Simulated assay, not measured.
Amino acid sequence: MSTPSAIDFRAQGPRLYHVRPDHPLAAAVTVELAIEYSTRYGGTAGAIHQQMRARPAADFTPPAGGLVVLVEHGEPLAGGGFRRADRTTAELKRVWTAREQRRRGLASRVLAELETMMIRLGYRRAFATTGDRQPEAGSLYRASGYIEVGGAERGGGRYRFEKLLGSAELGGACFPGTADPARGFARRDVYLA
């Protein structure tokens, strides 16, 4: 597997990259996500960012987890990750789309790639937790086959979504060396250094 040191700026349309938590693209997504959370829930973006950075990098690297970023013209458009909850269950984290890029199906593409990665790592179930001030996240998970379990935690306004993963889930995924012409996405099955 090759390891490019730079983003392919010549690429047509958004390209999906697997990244390590310390890669600048992952850092950019984390910063933007912290700003988004502070805007929706209060608190400072700096404190939220520091809290996210406190997570061990190993949580988001194989074989426990993974991170992806969708990039166009060198700019991150969307991203997300997952980490191990238990031996067969992964937890989705940090799913984000740039405000000006929403309604293009980018989060769905990121989620599909994360699910493909989870299956390859042996996970059979995924879950996500989101807050009541992120209705777009709930809509994304429902549209992607996740089932809302329980209800909002008392007073917390948090919702949990779960999905069983399996080989049938791979049907819409792109694999190395292929593209999804219907969506205009190219996939890079590599880690950026």
Score class of each variant (00 low, 15 high):
143 A>P: 01
86 D>Q: 03
94 R>F: 00
97 T>S: 05
149 V>Y: 14
138 G>V: 05
102 R>D: 14
93 K>E: 06
89 T>K: 08
102 R>I: 12
129 T>W: 13
93 K>L: 02
143 A>K: 10
152 A>K: 04
97 T>Y: 02
104 R>D: 08
101 Q>L: 11
100 E>M: 06
132 D>H: 08
125 R>T: 11
116 T>G: 11
132 D>G: 15
105 G>L: 05
143 A>F: 04
123 Y>F: 04
91 E>R: 01
125 R>D: 03
151 G>V: 06
154 R>M: 07
148 E>M: 00
148 E>W: 01
92 L>W: 08
84 R>V: 04
151 G>E: 06
118 M>A: 14
95 V>Y: 02
144 S>E: 12
110 V>Q: 05
103 R>K: 13
126 A>S: 04
86 D>R: 05
148 E>A: 01
116 T>H: 15
125 R>N: 09
101 Q>H: 13
150 G>K: 11
112 A>H: 09
102 R>E: 12
103 R>P: 11
86 D>G: 03
129 T>I: 15
87 R>I: 14
154 R>P: 06
130 T>P: 05
89 T>H: 10
133 R>L: 13
133 R>H: 11
119 I>W: 06
108 S>Y: 12
94 R>V: 00
149 V>Q: 14
108 S>F: 13
91 E>F: 05
124 R>H: 06
124 R>M: 03
150 G>N: 07
143 A>I: 01
153 E>Q: 15
135 P>W: 07
153 E>K: 14
96 W>K: 10
138 G>S: 12
87 R>N: 12
106 L>C: 11
120 R>G: 15
129 T>Q: 15
149 V>D: 10
112 A>I: 08
114 L>W: 04
133 R>A: 10
134 Q>T: 09
137 A>K: 00
122 G>N: 03
99 R>Q: 15
113 E>V: 00
86 D>H: 06
94 R>S: 08
96 W>I: 09
83 R>C: 11
93 K>M: 07
92 L>Y: 07
124 R>P: 06
131 G>M: 07
92 L>R: 07
146 Y>T: 09
97 T>Q: 02
150 G>Q: 04
92 L>G: 02
98 A>I: 02
113 E>A: 03
129 T>R: 15
121 L>Q: 14
130 T>E: 13
137 A>R: 01
95 V>K: 01
140 L>M: 05
100 E>W: 10
142 R>Y: 05
131 G>C: 05
91 E>W: 02
133 R>F: 06
108 S>T: 14
114 L>K: 03
116 T>C: 11
124 R>T: 13
138 G>K: 11
154 R>S: 12
139 S>R: 12
152 A>C: 10
142 R>V: 09
125 R>C: 06
141 Y>N: 10
150 G>E: 01
150 G>V: 02
88 T>H: 12
105 G>H: 04
117 M>G: 03
95 V>C: 02
133 R>P: 12
100 E>I: 12
145 G>V: 03
85 A>Y: 06
105 G>M: 03
147 I>H: 10
129 T>H: 14
